[in-house]
Design a protein around this nucleic acid. Sequence first.
RNA 1: AGAGAGGUGGCCGAGUGGUCGAAGGCGCACGACUGGAACUCGUGUAUGGGGCAACUCAUCGAGGGUUCGAAUCCCUUCCUCUCUGCCA
Length: 414
Amino acid sequence: MIDLKYLQKNFDEASAKLSKKGVDGEALENLKTLFSNLKDANARLEVAKADQNRMSKLFGEYMREKKDITELKAKVDANKEVIVVLQSTANKANDALQTIALAMPNLPDDSVPIGTDEDDNVELRKVLTPRVFDFEPKEHWALAEINGWIDFERGVKLAKSRFSVLRGDAARLERALINFFLDVNREKGFEEVCVPFINNASMLQGTGQLPKFEDDLFKIEDENLYLIPTAEVPLTNLYNDEILTDKELPILLTGYTPCFRKEAGSAGRDTRGMIRQHQFNKVEMVAIANPNESDKIFEMMVENASDILTQLGLPHRVVELCGGDLGFSAATTIDLEVWLPGQDKYREISSISNTREFQARRAKIRYRDGKKNRLVHTLNGSALAVGRTLVAIMENYQNEDGSIEIPKVLKKYM
RNA sequence: AGAGAGGUGGCCGAGUGGUCGAAGGCGCACGACUGGAACUCGUGUAUGGGGCAACUCAUCGAGGGUUCGAAUCCCUUCCUCUCUGCCA
C-alpha cells in the first residue's frame, strides 16, 4: 500500500510518479479526499469517545458513593447516540478508503524509465552471444515431440488446457534444474525454505495479489485459501505482522514451489508449448531488507539470476522495465530475458523487483530501528522459472537431428 | 471429522463487570555497586492511529452483541492442545 500521509503532503509529486504507471489523477484525488475525510471523522469520534470514557468512570464513582445518577445517565445516553452516528461515518470512510487504497499500485522509483508497455523497456546489457546454427533451429514443442519429452495431450486430459506432463529425461531435467538453482542460491547466502503451496487471503493481500487480482488466482472452494501464484507470497509473508531486529536483516530466502495462475486475460497468447502454463515450477529469491541496503541487495539478486543463466550457457539480456510495464507492487523491476533460437527472440525467464515499503506496509513487516519501528523493504525475484529454463535449454542445446545436449553444470544432477 | 480443554505483553502467568493496557515473575535495556564480572539494588520495557506537546483513541486470537462501562457476560468464527477416528 502506498503511504497515505506522504500522498497527502506531497500530492503533486505522488501524482506525477503514479502517472508513470498509468494511474490517472482523479483516482488519486479521490484517495486524498477519502483520507482527509477519514481523519476528520476519526478526530470527532475520538473526542466523543473520550467524553464517554470519562463519564463512564464518573458513573462508577457515583455508584460507589451512592450518588444520584439520573442526570449523568441522560448525558451519557445522549452521547452514546452521537458516537453511534460518528462511528458509522468513520467506518464508512475507512471502508471506502481501504477499497481504493488497496487497489492503488506502488509508486515507481524516479529512475524508472517512462513508457507505456514492454516496447519501452530499456535493455541494459546482453550476456553471452547466441550460438550460430548451421541448420534451422526448431521450437521447443517440435523438439519435445521428437524426444517424447512433453505430453501436452495427456496434461490437458488430466486437468485442462495449459497443463502438460513432462516425461523421462525432461522430468529429470526439470528436477535437476530445481536442485541446481537451490544450490546456487544457497551458496549465495539464501536460506532454503519449503513452504505451503496454499496461502490464505490475508497473505495474498500482504504481497498485493488481493484484492485486485483475484481473477488470476485459483481459489480453494469454500475456503479462504488460494493456490500460490508465486513463492513470493509465502516467502515474503513468512514475516507477516512481525517486528524484526535490525541484526536479523537482511533475511535472504529461497524456495522451490509450483506456481498456479489462471492467466485470465492471456487467452490466445503462447497457447502452443509450455511458455505459459496454469502450473509451473519456479525457484524464488526473497529478501527482507533494511531500507538502506535494499538497492545493494537488488543488484546482488539480479547478478545471481544472471549468473545462473551464464553457468547454464544460456544467452540472455538484462532489461529495465518502464513505468507502464511495471507490476502492481514493484517500485523498480529488472527482467532477464533468455534467448530462444526456435522463436528467434528473447523471452522473460526472471523478474526481479524491489517493492520498497509497499508490501511491508500491507503485510506489517517492520524492524526495530533504535526505539522506533520502521517498515522493511521487500524484494523478490525468480532464480529461475524452471519450465522456461527447460525450454531455453531445449532450444539452445538442440542438434540437427532434434536431440538435446545437457549443459555441463547439470551433469552431476542427472 | 467427533468429544473435551484453552487462546492475556518477548516468554511464563494472575485477573469473572468500573480505579485494568493489564499484578507477579523471567527475559531485555540503562544506571548504581565492582579492578572487571556474577550477585544485589534502582529505573525502564506492547502495538497501531491522532496531536508540536500535554494528552488522547483503539487493541487481552478475530468479528458481532449486551451494558453508562467488557480481558471478564452472550453469539459467531479461527487457531492450539488432549482423547477418539482417519491417514503420509
